[in-house]
């Protein structure tokens, strides 16, 4: 057994342990959780030779600083940020050797919101219901990091970093464009509400978090009054509470809810939503499902 440890020197605004998420317990009210920007999380793991299910640290805006008790390979992906080892600049988006006792400091994101720090061996906190992820809605998994916390490191897989490694970033978007597959409850809204969804100028609300991306902008008008009996919710659901302002469900969102879902953003677009800073303009492109083939 490896007895490597990670010491949190500076926890940052919100740093949590994340992996691919907690599957199979939604019927008991357990959210998916997991890294909000899964491609960035997977890339960080790949860059240090970790298997896909290893846990990384997800940072928010202000980065994190850590020290390790045994030498590891680290990689920082997601929102681009300056990286330092003992005060010397080091590579972002590339494997970096971190000697025992040296301090790795990931600075504030230059754009985007969430960074991922992978360490060879992964963060080896005990899994809860099959995942090491911190779930901020239900409190499962380790608490958000605090200065001085000590986390266990896992055994490196032995594969080492891949021969080619290059993290790519498209640059900061001027707006977030989200396709929305209408339904299951688009019939609870007026035709004007769907037009407002398509044409309205929305922006990311500062009240957004790992549970949901909240949106400022025009209200979506309901065609049906009254309460929707609570029903199962999926990641990417665009739920519309009574104030009419759409809320996009992210990884820590509840598994059931009682407000109608006008449409669902495909999971492949959620990483972009996870990197959207408050104030960023948001545009929705509503799409209708293709009719299923007529039954034989």
């Amino acid at each position: 057994m490896s007895d490597g440890k990670v010491e949190v020197v500076r926890a940052g605004a919100l740093t949590t342990v994340q992996d691919q998420g907690r599957f199979g317990h939604a019927a008991l009210g357990v959210p998916r959780s997991g890294a909000l920007d899964q491609p960035a999380h997977r890339l960080a793991n790949r860059l240090v030779g970790n298997p896909a299910d290893a846990a990384t640290l997800e940072t928010t805006l202000t980065g994190v600083a850590i020290r390790v008790t045994r030498p590891v390979t680290v990689a920082v992906t997601g929102a681009p940020a300056p990286v330092y080892v003992d005060g010397r600049p080091a590579a972002w988006g590339s494997p970096v050797r971190l000697p025992a006792g040296a301090v790795l400091d990931v600075g504030a994101a230059t754009f985007g919101l969430r960074g991922y720090l992978a360490l060879s061996g992964g963060i080896a906190v005990p899994p809860v219901l099959g995942s090491r992820s911190t779930d901020l809605l239900s409190g499962l998994g380790p608490a958000p990091l605090k200065d001085g916390d000590i986390l266990p490191l896992g055994e490196p897989a032995g594969a080492g970093p891949p021969p080619h490694h290059l993290a790519l970033w498209d640059g900061p978007p001027r707006e977030l464009v989200l396709p929305v597959l209408l339904g299951p409850r688009d019939d609870w809204f007026t035709a004007a509400a769907v037009r407002t969804l398509a044409a309205g100028r929305f922006s990311v609300s500062p009240h957004s978090n790992r549970i949901a991306l909240r949106l400022d902008g025009p209200a979506l008008e309901r065609a049906v009054d009254g309460e929707l009996p609570s029903e199962g919710m999926v990641l990417g659901a665009v739920q519309v509470p009574p104030d009419g302002r759409p809320v996009l469900f992210l990884a820590d969102s509840p598994t059931t809810g009682g407000y109608p879902v006008i449409g669902v953003v495909p999971e492949a677009r959620l990483p972009a939503a996870a990197q959207a800073r408050p104030g960023l303009p948001v545009r929705f492109t509503p799409l209708r499902h293709r009719r299923p083939a007529a039954a034989a």
């Binding site: 599957f23 199979g24 019927a27 009996p229 609570s230 029903e231 199962g232 598994t255 299923p292 083939a293």
Partner: peptide
């Protein structure tokens, strides 16, 4: 992947073959 009951609904979440399941349920 997940079968999530609601008050008057059942959500089938993470379906491998959506058109196939729709045809099956009908």
């Amino acid at each position: 992947r997940e079968i999530v009951p609601g008050e008057r609904t059942v959500l089938l979440y993470g379906v491998h073959d959506l058109p196939g399941l729709e045809a099956e349920l009908r």
